[in-house]
């Protein structure tokens, strides 16, 4: 079934089985492997992407439901060889360890800053409550987001 989908400002015309999830299409059809499948049931957030300005789990939305929506994946954070200030701040603060959660974590934080440029600590915590990280203990991630806010 034909699917026209806008990912990272590029419009794609694809042939997609209706039972495929957005995550499957991003990874398998478009080769955008930043979003990861961790749990496949909305617990871990490793598959987080931004759809029409909001963070969502791409494992819990069908690809065809994303028709006409604007999708942003972690691959679009870097622009013209320049990292997003969030990515810089994650590196500066040691907020990346094994790295599996990082793309999802970055997208949850990016969605937060797109909607709320000056979040409180509490708002940062709520924004990433759906992203599991077993390495950092979250403190460094929150610190990185706060640094990214400062560097706006």
């Amino acid at each position: 079934m034909e699917l026209i989908i806008n990912v990272n400002d590029i419009e794609y015309k694809l042939d997609v089985n209706p039972r495929m999830r957005l995550l499957d299409v991003l990874r398998e059809n478009l080769g955008l492997t930043g979003a990861k499948e961790g749990c496949g049931e909305g617990e871990c957030g490793a598959c987080t992407i931004i759809m029409d300005g909001l963070a969502i789990n791409s494992c819990m939305v069908l690809a065809h439901q994303a028709r006409g929506k604007k999708i942003i994946t972690v691959e679009a954070l870097e622009q013209d060889g320049e990292m997003d200030r969030l990515q810089e701040a994650f590196i500066n603060n040691g907020a990346v360890q094994c790295g599996y959660c990082t793309p999802g974590m970055l997208m949850s934080c990016k969605a937060l800053l797109m909607n709320n440029p000056n979040p409180t600590d509490e708002e940062i915590k709520i924004a990433i409550e759906g992203n599991l990280c077993r390495c950092t203990g979250y403190i460094k991630i929150v610190r990185a987001v706060k640094e990214a806010i400062q560097n706006q």
Binding site: G42, G45, T48, L54, A55, I56, N57, M60, V61, S108, A111, I126, A127, I128, E129, G130, N131
Partner: peptide
């Protein structure tokens, strides 16, 4: 309910 991502959907 759930997480930010779940509440968004």
């Amino acid at each position: 309910i759930g997480s930010t991502q779940i509440r968004n959907a």
